[in-house]
Simulated scan of single mutants.
Amino acid sequence: MTKQLITFEIADKRLGVDIMAIREIRAWTPPTPIPHAPAFVRGIVNLRGTVLPVVDLSDRLGWDAIAPSPRHVIIVIQIGEQMHGLVVDSVNDIVTIEPAALQPPPDLGGGSSRHLSGLIAVDDRMVMVLDLRCMAIDGDALLADAA
Rank of each mutant, 00 (worst) to 15 (best):
Pro105Cys: 10
Ala11Thr: 06
Ile79Met: 11
Ser112Gln: 13
Ile120Gly: 08
Pro99Gln: 08
His84Ser: 09
Ser117Gln: 14
Arg14Thr: 15
His84Asn: 10
Leu5His: 02
Ile97Ser: 09
Ala21Cys: 13
Ile19His: 12
Pro31Thr: 07
Ile66Ala: 07
Arg125Pro: 04
Cys134Pro: 02
Leu143Pro: 05
Ala121Cys: 06
Pro35Phe: 04
Pro70His: 07
Ala146Gly: 13
Ser90Ile: 05
Pro68Trp: 05
Asp140Tyr: 04
Cys134Thr: 12
Ala11Cys: 06
Ser90Tyr: 04
Val54Arg: 09
His36Cys: 03
Ile137Pro: 05
Asp18Met: 01
Thr7His: 14
Ile34Leu: 13
Gln78Leu: 07
Asp124Cys: 06
Cys134Gly: 08
Leu142Gly: 00
Asp64Gln: 12
His36Lys: 06
Pro70Leu: 11
Leu108Gln: 04
Ala101Tyr: 00
Ser117Glu: 15
Ile79Glu: 14
Leu86His: 03
His115Asp: 15
Leu15Phe: 11
Gly109Val: 07
Gly110Asn: 10
Ser112Lys: 09
Ile66Glu: 06
Pro35Ala: 05
Ser90Cys: 09
Arg114Cys: 09
Met128Thr: 04
Val129Trp: 00
Val87Glu: 02
Asp138Tyr: 02
Arg23Met: 12
Ile79Arg: 07
Thr50Met: 12
Thr96Asp: 11
Ile19Cys: 14
Met126Val: 15
Ser117Val: 12
Ala67Tyr: 01
Asp64Val: 02
Ile66Arg: 07
Leu86Tyr: 03
Pro106Met: 13
Gly80Asp: 02
Pro53Trp: 01
Gly110Gln: 11
Glu9Leu: 02
Met20Ile: 11
His84Ile: 11
Arg48Gln: 09
Val17Leu: 15
Asp124Arg: 11
Ile6Trp: 03
Gly110Leu: 09
Asp107Asn: 02
Ile74Lys: 01
